[in-house]
C-alpha cells in the first residue's frame, strides 16, 4: 500500500452531475505551488496562464503566481509555498458551462473578454475561486478551497439542473 492511497480528495464520494449541456468532474491532487517574488519559470501576462513544460503558471497578482503540475509532480522553487492540498479542482465543461458560471460569477466570460489561457481570482456564488479557462470548447477549471468544495459542488449541481 502506497502512502498516496491514504489520500482523500475533498470531493471523494461527493456526487457531481454530468449531462448533455454540462459536465462536472473533480480533478484531485494537482500539485500547486504559490510563488511570490522572483520567478524561476516563464511568466504569463496579467490574468493569463503560461506553459512551463507540462506545468501551467497562473497569474495571481503582481509578482505572484500559482504553478500547477500533475499529481505527484515535485519541484522546489525559492520562496514557494506548497498549496497542493489547499484547493481541489472542479472541471466544468460542455456547451452550457458558461451559462452555469453566469448564474454566480460576476466576471464577463464572453469570448471577447475571457477565454482559454485566462485565469482570475474571483467569487463564484458565495465562495472564492481561482477560475481558469483551459479551452474555448469551453472548459473551465475552478480551483476552490477544500473547505468550500462541498458547497460549491452542490451549488454547481443545482445551477446545472436545467442543462442536464
Amino acid at each position: 500500500m502506497t502512502v498516496e492511497s491514504l489520500r482523500r480528495s475533498p470531493l471523494a464520494d461527493h456526487p457531481l452531475v454530468s449531462g448533455s449541456g454540462v459536465r462536472l468532474v473533480e480533478i484531485p491532487f494537482l500539485t500547486a505551488v504559490n510563488v511570490q517574488g522572483a520567478p524561476g519559470f516563464p511568466t504569463p501576462p496579467a490574468s493569463g496562464v503560461a506553459a512551463w513544460g507540462e506545468r501551467s503558471v497562473l497569474w495571481l497578482g503582481p509578482e505572484e503566481w500559482l504553478v500547477v503540475g500533475p499529481d505527484g509532480d515535485t519541484f522546489d522553487l525559492p520562496g514557494g509555498v506548497d498549496v497542493s492540498a489547499n484547493r481541489t479542482t472542479i472541471e466544468l465543461s460542455g456547451p452550457n458551462a458558461r451559462d452555469v458560471l453566469e448564474k454566480g460569477c460576476t466576471l464577463d466570460l464572453h469570448p471577447r473578454a475571457f477565454g482559454a489561457g485566462r485565469c482570475a481570482q474571483t467569487t463564484l456564488a458565495r465562495s472564492q475561486v481561482l477560475l481558469w479557462q483551459t479551452s474555448n470548447a469551453p472548459v473551465y477549471r475552478l480551483m476552490v478551497r477544500g473547505s468550500f468544495a462541498h458547497y460549491l459542488a452542490d451549488w454547481l449541481t443545482d445551477a446545472a439542473q436545467e442543462y442536464l
Binding site: 475533498p10 456564488a125 458565495r126 473547505s147 468550500f148 460549491l152 452542490d154 451549488w155
Partner: peptide, 14 residues
C-alpha cells in the same frame, strides 16, 4: 438559488 442548504456556504474539514 441562495436558499435552503445553499443559503450560505458551509465549510467543512477533511
Amino acid at each position: 438559488r441562495n436558499r435552503g442548504a445553499l443559503h450560505d456556504p458551509v465549510r467543512t474539514t477533511a
